[in-house]
Amino acid sequence: MTSDHRLLLVHAHPDDETINNGATMARYADDGAGVTLVTCTAGEMGEVLVPDLAYLAYEEKGGLGEHRRGELEEAMKVLGVTDHRFLGGFGRFHDSGMAWHEDGHAVAGEFVPDNAFWNADLIEPADELVKVIREVRPHVLVTYDQFGGYGHPDHIQAHRVAMYGAQLAAAPSYRLELGEPHDIAKIYWTAMSESRMRASLRELREAGDTETFAGMEPDGKLPPFVTPDELISARVDGRATVERKMDALAKHATQVQADGPFFSGAESGHSWWAEEFYRLVKGIPGPAGADGFEEDLFAGL
């Protein structure tokens, strides 16, 4: 890539990229930046929310991963992202599945396939990412925090692979056959603003909605995927691209319901989805805007 700005995103399954960063990806694609998406698994064990496609489920006939591959391709067309790849090639690392813990976060399920991403020796997927980093030579990397946002084993593994791969890619003496070493200038973790979440919860409850985000209250304890604002470094204003984000999310039809909370009520709005927040974990922050956040992930480079 020859663009002056290059962004690399590492995600666990198809649809994660659009939910977390769809407005950001569309914005930078429109700006002419190089945007590369690496998806670590095909999401073969995900839930199928379309009754007519229930046969694709892992526990039925299977084939969900191949179907989601097509959904991802269509979503990327909407966002304008032309460089999207599966880590190590399609099917190299299998979806690990998950279960829900009683505390409300994801954990590994009772059954984890032998070829699951969660079971992979960390060096193997990290080396695959090293190849991508040294080829693309991104200025900015985006991935999850150490808990993968909500505890999904594939999200946690994606975080580990992204952070380790970035370190290995920069090492001047590490496996030079994988490409010329490259040090990524800025690394961000995705985040959800605590103040934004509390304000939205307050609006929901005052409007009489007790079902959306059930169990969460404006002044109560929040789940681990919510990030205190003092830890957040950047906020990307996606008002100009949020409609495309929602259109791209609709392409992941097996994973979202058109009449569900992603698309209806105060949760979407669509203002909820137009702001995307990030924690800077490597690099020098750029100048902050009026709200105290960086407004451009490439600021300061």
Rank of each mutant, 00 (worst) to 15 (best):
T2S: 15
H5S: 08
H5I: 09
R6T: 05
L8Q: 10
V10M: 13
A12M: 03
H13D: 06
H13N: 15
H13S: 06
D16I: 00
D16P: 09
E17I: 08
I19Q: 05
M25C: 03
D31Y: 07
D31V: 10
G32H: 09
G34C: 02
T36I: 10
T39Y: 02
T41W: 00
E44S: 08
E44T: 14
E44Q: 07
V48S: 01
V48F: 01
P51F: 04
P51A: 02
D52F: 04
A54C: 05
K61Q: 11
K61C: 11
G62S: 11
G65W: 14
R68C: 08
E71H: 07
E74R: 14
A75Y: 08
K77M: 07
K77W: 00
L79S: 00
G80E: 01
V81I: 10
T82C: 03
H84W: 12
F90T: 01
R92C: 05
H94Y: 10
H94A: 06
M98T: 01
E102P: 04
G104M: 02
G104V: 06
A106H: 11
V107W: 10
G109W: 01
E110S: 08
E110R: 00
E110V: 00
D114G: 14
N115F: 07
N115I: 11
N115M: 05
A116D: 03
F117K: 00
F117C: 01
A120Y: 04
A126F: 04
A126P: 08
L129K: 01
L129F: 15
K131L: 13
K131T: 14
V132D: 14
R137L: 06
H139K: 05
V142F: 06
T143Q: 11
G148P: 13
G148E: 03
Y150R: 09
H155W: 06
I156G: 07
I156L: 01
A158V: 02
V161Y: 04
V161P: 04
A162G: 09
L168H: 03
A171I: 09
S173F: 14
L178Y: 09
G179Q: 10
E180Q: 03
E180G: 02
D183P: 05
K186F: 05
K186L: 14
I187M: 13
T190R: 14
S195L: 02
R196Q: 11
E203Y: 05
E203A: 11
E206C: 00
T210G: 00
E211K: 09
E211Y: 13
A214F: 08
G215R: 05
G215S: 12
M216K: 06
P218N: 10
G220S: 08
K221N: 12
K221V: 15
P228Y: 10
I232F: 06
S233K: 12
S233G: 12
S233V: 11
A234E: 02
A240F: 04
R244Q: 14
K245N: 08
M246T: 08
K251M: 04
H252E: 05
H252S: 00
A253F: 12
A253V: 15
T254N: 02
Q255M: 05
V256Q: 03
V256I: 14
A258W: 00
G260Q: 12
F262I: 15
F263H: 09
S264P: 04
S268N: 11
S268D: 03
G269T: 15
G269Y: 10
W273E: 13
E275R: 15
E276G: 09
L280Q: 05
K282W: 10
I284H: 07
I284L: 12
P285T: 12
A288M: 10
D291G: 09
E294K: 01
D296T: 10
A299D: 01
L301Q: 15
